[in-house]
């Protein structure tokens, strides 16, 4: 029986929700087409993570455990994935779209001569392979695409599917893997971690995004305060990541991250299409901008026209009251 394989993204020992979204979709497709859904964990502590996966309903859980996977490096990950693909010959390999998985998608597809689709927002199986939808033109429109052959390799945008829990008694199979340092070719010298990035933006239920209108220390303090009242992740527009005000890993948009929270609050952000590309799927959008014609108001459910320095203090107070009730 052919297999739909979901790669489980792990960050600091924690499973990324976006990869469970992909697994849930693959489970659904597998039962629809009478196929097998398998999850794959490639990590330095894969066994511990594999156990947690049983509650998300795969038929089999494969693991590759090796210290080399403590940090992301494309060479060993590519080797591991090629090894797994040879071993189980899947019909589909699906990843959550992250900077780590996008790093290897193209090379993996080229090495295995498989068709690949990046950053899809929907996917289904067809006779020929996979049909999917992808936002294009800075997410202004959607393209329906088809990838032919077997396997097809895809990455899926976060927030595209719901996570469904379903306990299973999936067997855990460890796949032997060894790797010599001299095969590495590239060397990781250092990781500069974003300070204060406690909440993973792509998984946050509430996102506060700061733009060029947030001009100084006082503005950033207001943003921090609002985020702490709402227990929100903080993101930023390119104007502020470029200026070094916020860490580049917090950038939301075409170049940065895709977020799909329940609540997005854009503050002093004009709403350029490249920014909107990364947040348009938020459930409720609030915008605070002093320019009544700012494009962000075209997509905002609640558009507050005004100076953020005047709006935020009473807004924060009100939200505190609402929270305490």
């Amino acid at each position: 029986m052919s297999t739909l394989l979901t790669y489980i993204s792990v960050n600091d020992g924690k499973i990324k929700r976006s990869s469970l979204e992909v697994l849930s979709r693959c489970n659904e497709l597998a039962s629809l087409h009478g196929l097998k859904s398998a999850a794959l964990v490639v990590d330095s502590a894969a066994a511990a993570i594999a156990d947690q996966l049983k509650q998300y309903g795969p038929d089999t859980i494969y693991t590759i455990e090796n210290p080399i996977f403590k940090n992301h490096l494309n060479t060993p990950l590519l080797r591991a994935l090629s090894r797994v693909m040879e071993e189980i010959n899947p019909r589909l390999v699906a990843f959550a779209s992250t900077e780590s998985t996008k790093d290897i998608l193209g090379a993996l597809a080229a090495n295995s001569e498989a068709a690949s689709l990046a950053d899809v927002s929907e996917f289904e199986l067809t006779e020929a392979g996979v049909k999917a939808k992808r936002p294009v033109m800075a997410s202004k429109i959607i393209s329906a695409v088809e990838a032919k052959g077997s396997p097809v390799i895809i990455t899926v945008r976060s927030g595209s599917y719901d996570v469904t829990e379903k306990s299973s008694d999936a067997p855990i199979e460890s796949i032997p893997f060894s790797f010599n340092d001299d095969e590495l070719k590239i060397t990781l010298k250092e990781i500069i971690s974003a300070s204060g990035d406690k909440i993973d933006l792509s998984e946050a239920e509430t996102v506060i995004a700061a733009g060029r209108g947030v001009k100084d220390e006082e503005g950033r303090k207001l943003i921090d305060e609002l985020a702490s009242v709402l227990n929100a992740g903080i993101g930023a527009s390119r104007a502020l990541t470029e200026a070094g005000v916020y860490d580049p890993s917090l950038q939301i948009g075409q170049t940065g991250k895709v977020v799909s929270p329940q609540l997005y609050i854009g503050i002093g952000i004009s709403g350029a299409i490249q920014h909107v590309a990364g947040m348009a799927n938020s459930k409720v959008i609030v915008a605070i901008n002093k320019d009544p014609d700012a494009p962000i108001f075209e997509i905002a459910d609640y558009g507050i026209v005004g100076d953020l320095y005047k709006i935020l203090p009473p807004f924060i107070d009100e939200l505190k009251k609402v929270k305490n009730n």
Binding site: H72, L73, T98, T187, E190, I191, S193, A194, D197
Partner: peptide
Amino acid sequence: KRQGDTGQEIID
């Protein structure tokens, strides 16, 4: 210097 998921990875 590549932008990774949570920080920047410095790679030779």
